[in-house]
Design a protein around this nucleic acid. Structure first.
Lengths: 204, 204
DNA sequence: CAGAGATTTGGACGATTGACAAGGAAAATC
DNA sequence: GATTTTCCTTGTCAATCGTCCAAATCTCTG
């Protein structure tokens, strides 16, 4: 456990944790622009009201900072599908709203998704924030699985796959759509919507 | 066009191009170990019979070197499925051998695949070797599509998807299997084989 | 108000990076 | 065998990196 964590315990109020979240948010925006490798802590500090030295006051090192940043973003990201799963009345409605959400997040948060895949790959080389990445991966897998099982339930049948396979598929088509979109293919926004609905409903 | 290309033209024999391939091969092995960002040109030169300065004699810059390296590896990689497509007598045989090849390359060349996904992601931030990455992506997409269409042909029916969607699916399950495998899940080797056959044959 | 603790700053550190230049060694050419 | 061209090495360059620290500033308590 680093010095930062110790200091956090001493702080009776969570002013410390609050600043941590603020700084991590700024770091997220900074790193999303140029990628993890090419973004220095000075670039992060530049987008902040604080200075470079303060980053090490709130974070142990760069990995700690980026790990916190991607975690608080993605954990919120994964929860975005909960209301859809809970409130959808029919399988068709669930599928439609799911596809709509997938399409919208591709269009509006392409840079953040690009960063996520960047960090997930870096975690295959470094051990820095590997645990955080694995946790997020599990979160996303569970999210996909809850959508799949809920759809099957509404349709009155059993899911055709398991959680791991389902996540692999949806993650795969989303990543490929993201790449196409970032390369200038604006049609990917509509394609990922249709493909998501298709994959969920099993319509070929 | 860089100085290197000009020099290559002057050279009547292709001694120059030969050395380029050798060096690019060494670079591939070096970068595959620690990733693109964390591997310096000195690390590459250390795995070579030549010195650091020689790298700039044969390559314009780091991007040129890595671009050449990943190209000559992946272009060979994509051709590995050609004999299967050409010689398979039945759909079942095609599917089996395809799944076997996917599984084998995951097991034997995990580091190289990890590097490929690393570089493909970096190309979403930099323009350095973006064109090379896009070319490789097209190569892989065509390879997958040739397998899918050949299978449909042997089975006497039409493909159920298009080339882009098919590549997205196979690439997605392979990437997820690679991640699982690199995280220590040795069962991913068998799972990608089964999943590949399933996805190709359409068996749910 | 005085002091203690928390927060923030700017600068400096050693290490590493990609790129490059000047010159020696090798090979090819005449 | 001399000279030109190709090949390769060593050393250096400025820039950038993550990390750390001493001191200044701010905030709160006694």
């Amino acid at each position: 456990m680093g010095d930062v964590a110790v200091r956090a315990e001493r702080s009776s109020v969570d002013k410390f944790a609050l600043r941590r979240r603020e700084l991590a948010d700024a770091a997220l925006a900074a790193v999303a622009q140029r990628g993890f490798a090419k973004t220095g802590l000075r670039d992060v500090a530049a987008q902040t009201a604080l200075s470079l030295g303060s980053l090490h006051y709130y974070f142990d090192d760069k990995d700690d900072l980026i790990g916190q940043a991607i975690w608080q973003h993605k954990s919120e990201c994964a929860r975005r599908y909960d209301p859809i799963v809970e409130s959808a009345q029919t399988g068709a409605e669930l599928a439609d709203r799911f596809g709509e959400e997938m399409s919208a997040t591709l269009r509006d948060e392409a840079d953040l998704h690009r960063l996520w895949y960047d960090l997930r790959n870096q975690a295959l080389f470094d051990t820095g924030f590997r645990d955080t990445i694995i946790s997020i991966d599990a979160l996303l897998r569970d999210m996909v699985w809850s959508v799949v099982t809920r759809y099957a339930e509404l349709e009155g049948r059993a899911p055709e796959t398991d959680a791991v396979s389902a996540y692999a598929m949806f993650d795969g088509i989303f990543l490929n759509a993201l790449i196409a979109y970032l390369r200038g293919d604006t049609g990917a926004v509509e394609r990922i919507r249709v493909a998501s609905v298709r994959l969920l409903t099993g319509t070929h």
